[in-house]
Computed example of a mutant assay.
Amino acid sequence: MISALKPELNRTYILELLEKLLNTPSPSGFCMEIMMLIRAEAQKLGYAVEMTPKGNAIITVPGEQEGETIRLTAHVDTLGAMVRAIKPNGMLRMTPIGGYAMQTVEGEYCRIHTRSGRTYEGTVLSTKPSVHVYPDARDFKREEANMEVRIDELVKDKAGVEALGIGVGDYISWDPRTRLLPNGWVKSRHLDDKASMAGLFGLLEWLKREGRKPQRTVKVIISTYEEVGHGSSFIPADIFEMIAVDMGALGDDLSGTELDVSICAKDSSGPYDYNMTSRLIELAKREGLPYAVDIYPQYGSDASAALRGGSNIRAALVGPGVHASHGMERTHADAIMNTAVLLLAYIMEPMTP
């Protein structure tokens, strides 16, 4: 039994790592820097890291018993954009990476990452950005064609932008605006899914510090294309069970809160494994963790991608509750900690049929 683990998890370590992750730009497909950070952190804890051709990372934690392997997966890729075109007036037209509403990025500070390694500041605006000039500015539809990036450089035409080295296909990342408050609230862009990633590293840190092994071998897989739907479409053949650790959606008729571990019974891909979901609920009760069981009709996960990719696995989905997902997100440190506790309880238990 894994009771009363919460005080032993290193809260400071988890939150400090979370802040590093949040402040490292990583739109889907542009995860080189953050994967270097992940690799260095895993090696610091004493874990070997295997990189896949796709750019995902695999951290293997040997278990007490031989047999079927559990996979815990979270993703470090985030929402973002890419330069679609350079306009004659020196503004950038963008194309979104990931699924978000355009109004959630209007007015946001951003960075343009050129392929030569240079980075420039900018701001996302509508093409009618001022109520003092455009009579329909308030009602103007916020959609891709009506949004642009203003570059913070002395440029006023396409040639000036090109002279900076900016070109079509360059990545654009959002300023995360991360705040870790003394009362435990964490607000930032990209808590989906960097909050879960920090919790998983808290789990790894505890196992190493306590000299403990899970019952079965655990493979922690960090994916880099989840936001575009194929982060874990391929997984190693020895995986029997997979738990996607991803943010819990909140709102509408959902019962979860930012303080809860969210356990998803069904998302847009269909129901998750009945026995695994039931076991997670039982363990949350046993450990005295605030939790909620919910349905996410507009949601998909790395487990969804693996199942759709033909993987013959059992799968479940848990994570900290996150408000305003794909917008200005917020969660609580307790939800991140409790998610790690629930996962520890699961992997330290003998396998149930």
Rank of each mutant, 00 (worst) to 15 (best):
G167L: 11
Y225R: 14
M1H: 13
Y120V: 09
N275L: 12
I347E: 01
L254D: 11
Y171T: 12
A340V: 12
G67A: 11
S233K: 09
N312W: 07
P88N: 05
A48R: 08
G256I: 07
I243F: 00
G46F: 03
R138T: 05
V220H: 00
M102E: 08
Y225S: 11
F234I: 15
V149L: 13
V133K: 10
K266E: 07
I112V: 15
S262D: 05
G310A: 14
S304W: 03
K6A: 15
D192P: 06
I112C: 08
G211T: 11
S126G: 15
E349I: 00
V245T: 03
R138W: 01
G122I: 12
S130Y: 12
A74D: 01
T24R: 04
S223Y: 03
Y13M: 14
G169V: 06
V322E: 06
D175N: 15
L307A: 10
V131P: 05
E205I: 14
G55T: 10
A340I: 12
S255W: 11
L259F: 15
A306H: 06
G55P: 11
V149S: 09
P53V: 07
V133S: 10
L200N: 04
S304T: 04
K128V: 07
A48T: 09
D193Y: 02
S262I: 08
S116L: 11
L207D: 12
A284Y: 01
I239C: 07
G80Q: 07
A265I: 07
N89E: 03
A195G: 15
A335R: 09
M348V: 00
E8L: 15
I221N: 00
S301W: 00
G63F: 10
L15D: 11
V105E: 06
G160V: 00
A284W: 01
K20S: 09
V341L: 06
E282R: 09
I313L: 08
G122L: 14
L307K: 08
T69C: 05
V220Q: 04
